[in-house]
Write a protein that binds this DNA or RNA. Sequence first.
DNA 1: ACGTATTTGTTCGTATGTATC
DNA 2: GGATACATACGAACAAATACG
Lengths: 236, 236
Amino acid sequence: MARPMLWQQIASNLAADIERGDYVPGDQLPTERVLAERFEVNRHTVRRAIQSLVEKGLIRSEQGRGTFVTDIVIEYLVSSRTRFAENVVAADYDPSSKPVRVKTIPSPPAVARALVIDIGDPVILIETLGMADGHPVSLSAHYFSEARLSGIDQMYLQTQSITQALYRLGVVDYFRESTAITTRLPSRRESRHLNQPISQPILVAHSLNIDAAGRVIEYAEGRYAGLRVKMLVRPR
Amino acid sequence: MARPMLWQQIASNLAADIERGDYVPGDQLPTERVLAERFEVNRHTVRRAIQSLVEKGLIRSEQGRGTFVTDIVIEYLVSSRTRFAENVVAADYDPSSKPVRVKTIPSPPAVARALVIDIGDPVILIETLGMADGHPVSLSAHYFSEARLSGIDQMYLQTQSITQALYRLGVVDYFRESTAITTRLPSRRESRHLNQPISQPILVAHSLNIDAAGRVIEYAEGRYAGLRVKMLVRPR
DNA sequence: ACGTATTTGTTCGTATGTATC
DNA sequence: GGATACATACGAACAAATACG
């Protein structure tokens, strides 16, 4: 029997530390020199261990900076049928979501313009937190015209799915008409929900969804954790 | 004839200041109190003037912060034929660009992967600063395989246009195959070139351009001033 | 704007243990 | 046993990128 090699022992040690949460995604690992001292081996041996973890995708090294635990990265495909859960599944993570706020409010100007209603007309706001493997990824505010889709708030609370809620209200399918992507620093509230530092920028996507007949269904403002999300566009 | 109202005189005064460049996009105007003193009118009168300029879209006021000259906002359409100049013209600004760096380097891993060459193979880097009405908007690094497009650096320096340079090398047209959009804070160098604070996030777009035959032509990393750029996606 | 310290990346050389013929 | 090839591990030095005052 081959006895386990030194570098493999070190690799599984480090992997266990990461698994246990000693180091969370984005954290910097100790330097190679420090690890070499801790494990009482040569730096080469530590490097061999690190290399194997990099190949596994668990960590990433950056020359001159350090070695870091890999962040969860969702490649968020912006297409005509953009759905949160599908994108997370495609990235091989476990999707989940929960309501943050559900309420009816007078529509702000930007929302009214998008939904083609008058400013102040009642709109239903459903704000959701989307997660991948339990890590928050997106905080999305979905706006619906109360006049057109009355009761969607109740349907959503029952089904926990906007697609499902729309379906029960007769919207069998809907499409992404346009998406405008910007960036800014998060508010305190946003940084709290997305569990990321207030100094880390977020991606902001304003999108308009229409049904098969071209009627405006939903206007949404999605805020995405900049560290964990990449928007992928394949143009027509 | 109705003689001009006080608030209108003040409004056109302020508009002229802005037109003349006393205040550039993003600048904060003096507070309402200060303006009231300067024009020797009541604050209400200043407010009426400001309101009219806000409606014209020239300035924007933020409760508790101040009044600011509207930033230039480019709606950058991500499509199969994405060209910088065309996007700037569509937003009604005057496009220009200048080279920042032109050099041949061994290809870094990410570039090699995108261009389907070996790591370290020579690539030509052309870095350009794109401007709208003289305000920097994008800092883009364009990578070309030296083996495939030898001499494009010289062509670019002659024509000052990447599209033109490619044309002279036999690439009559090219298309955007994919674009990945992320965000982060700028480096010192980037913030300097884009003339924006280091604390303001930038949009980062990694894109791949191919020719009509589907051959990879160019890999680019565009960095866009977050304050002045909105990426617009119309999915297929 | 520029040097200094830190950190990863690369390349030498050397020694040792293991498997194979 | 002997010769060879190969992988593992250690040591030292330098290169390249980065961070920071």
